[in-house]
Simulated assay, not measured.
Amino acid sequence: MIDAVAEHTAAVTKDGALYSTGWDRYGNLGLIPEKFSIVEISGGSRHTMALTNDGMFYGWGWNKFGQVGVVDNVDHCSQVLFKFSHDQKGVHVSCGWRHTLVH
């Protein structure tokens, strides 16, 4: 699976490994210190979100508008867990320039 957006490209292999390339000014390429089994990715202009096989969402990159899913509005160079209001799991993620939609 590949997602190419304005400033970077992210690709996931069949075994769930992530590879990314492009402009990394905001950390949108991600420094993933641990292996996740990623089943879906989506890139915004300067951020990336990933859905893992256990239904968890992780994001990294530009977070000025909270689009990575944490409330600090700080850019993140490594993954942070997207917080749902309840113990929910996700099935799909889609990113835009300044926003992320999860479902």
Rank of each mutant, 00 (worst) to 15 (best):
H86W: 08
I41A: 10
N73C: 11
R46L: 14
S45G: 12
G61V: 09
D54C: 08
L29V: 15
G69R: 01
V70W: 06
A50S: 06
F65L: 14
K83G: 07
V68F: 04
V70A: 02
R46F: 15
G30H: 14
G59M: 03
W60F: 10
I41T: 10
F36E: 00
S37G: 09
G44T: 12
V80S: 05
S42D: 15
C77K: 13
L51M: 13
D75W: 01
H76I: 01
H76E: 00
N53F: 10
K64S: 10
V70S: 03
W62N: 02
M49V: 13
C77A: 12
P33V: 05
T52K: 12
G66A: 07
Y58I: 00
F82Q: 00
G43R: 12
V39F: 04
F57P: 12
K35Q: 11
C77R: 13
K83R: 10
A50I: 03
F65P: 02
D54A: 04
S42F: 07
D75P: 00
T48R: 07
N73P: 05
L31S: 14
K83N: 03
D75M: 01
T48P: 05
V68P: 04
T52W: 08
P33I: 02
L31I: 13
G30Y: 11
E40T: 06
N73I: 05
E34S: 15
Q79M: 08
I38P: 03
K83Y: 03
L29C: 15
L51E: 14
V71Q: 14
P33G: 09
I32F: 04
I38G: 05
E40P: 09
T52L: 03
N53L: 14
E34L: 13
N73V: 05
G44D: 11
V71M: 12
V71R: 15
G61W: 07
